[in-house]
Structures are given as C-alpha cells and as structure tokens.
Amino acid sequence: MKKNRRSFLKVAGLSVFALSSGLGSLAGEAKADVAPGKYEAEPLGRKPLAAKRWAMVIDTRKFKSADDYKPLIDACHKEHNVPRIRGAQNAEGHDDQEIKWLWLDKFDHAFPDEMNEYLTPKIKAQVFPMLCNHCTNPPCVRVCPTQATYKLPNGIVTMDYHRCIGCRFCMAGCPYGARSFNFVDPRKYLPEQVPNPKFPTRMIGVVEKCTFCVERLDKGMMPACVEASGGRILFGDLEDPNSVVRKALAENFTIRRKPSLGTQPGVYYII
C-alpha cells in the first residue's frame, strides 16, 4: 500500500511537471527579453499603413495583355530578389522548380471552379494574375508544424524563413499553388549584385511566397505591385466601409479563386 502511494505520488508529480512545462511552451509564454531596450511599431520617418484586414482588388478589365502585367511582376520580383529559374541554364533543378510570387495564367486555370464552356473570346484570350490570397482561414498556417508561416492580426499571411524546415506541407495544403520551394540555391539564379540590396534573398530548402509587402506597409509604403499598377490594383482595409477596396467591391461584380473551400481569400478580381 505504502509503496503504491509513493509510486502514485511520483507518477503524479512527474505528470504535473511534464504537463505544466508542455503547456507553458504550447501557450507560447513570452521568454524574458535579453535586450534592455523596448520595441515600437512606429517607423522612423513615415507612418506605417495599418488595417484590420488587408485585401486587394484587381481590376482585370484595365489590363489588356500579359505585357501589361509585366511591370508589376518585375517590380515584385525585383523588390524581393525573386530568382528567375524557368528557362535558366541550370545543372541541378528543372523548370518546374521555379519560384513565383506573382504570376499569370489563363482563366480556366486561375478559376477552375468557373466551368462555363463557352466564354467570351476576350476572357478566353486574357491572362489573370495570381498571388498568395492571404486567406482568412489559411490552410498553410494550419498545417505548418513549426509556425514558420503565420497570420498577422492585419490578415497578412507571412513567413519566417529562419524557422522553415522545408517539409512542404504548406505547399500540399495551399489550394492556390501560391507557394514555391527553393529546390535549388536561389543565389545561383540572381546576379552577383542582387536587384534589391536592402532586402534579403532566401536560402536553399525553404518555402517562400508573396507577403503582401508587409515590410513596405510597416514603413508606410504600398505593396510593390500596387504601386506599379498605376491604380489598376486597389489595396486597402476590407473592414473599413470607406476604404478603396470596399468601394470597389460595392460598385463592381468581383470573383475570388476557389471560394467554395472556405479559405476566404483576400484577393478579389473585377472581371
């Protein structure tokens, strides 16, 4: 009896210890900061752009061809040092292992749920831009085993490349094919002097994607593609009824990619 009680106490004590230490880390208890200073959001110089839920409206009527989108894609890929792998001479990888943050495809590939067989010749010929949808219920965040990808309070789904283990579960999880994996060393496909020396590149073996230019928003700048679009892409707060995006949504018929999956994409298309 005595022995039983003692062993029970031992086990109970151990379990309480294990649970408390486990729960502590699960709850993400903040560790004591090493730095003696403080942290602030207010950037030096410009005011940060803030929103409750960032969203994007793309007016595809105002883009005539793929060439119209090219400056936007170039701006995005230059801003973030995105390497160009497709068509490059490479020994290791192959074309399908490319990196894309903002890219184009035909209507039936961009919106496979829209199954009308007979489309207007204009829509049939048109290409549509695709990027990360910054979903309200992002499957990529749900499946990531290390919280390397996470959703910010302002609705942006972004990544910490330092923490990514390269398991690619998020790529299987994303219904929009918005994620790219660095199958090869991206630096090998960038010039010696990278396009934007103020922004890092990525390393081999991590996943990356569009970040809605969160680093620019924090410094008070609009996303690179929005800036380059000359007003053809609108960006604003979905929860603010007076924002440009809400006005555009109120005045135009818009569609989103694969809305039936319940992810609530944050990118709207005026067709």
Binding site: L26, I165, G166, G205, V207
Partner: peptide, 21 residues
C-alpha cells in the same frame, strides 16, 4: 525529404498543436 533537415527539431522547439505533422 526535408529542405532544411538540420532544423527538424524546430517541430519540438515550437510545438504546434494545430499541425497534423
């Protein structure tokens, strides 16, 4: 299969109960 196998233990360092992995 991991792109960054040396970081595999991040799964334990940052336990994520919403991930099936």
């Amino acid at each position: 299969d991991l792109g960054q196998p040396q970081r595999a233990l991040n799964v334990l360092l940052h336990p994520t109960p919403n991930s099936v992995m």
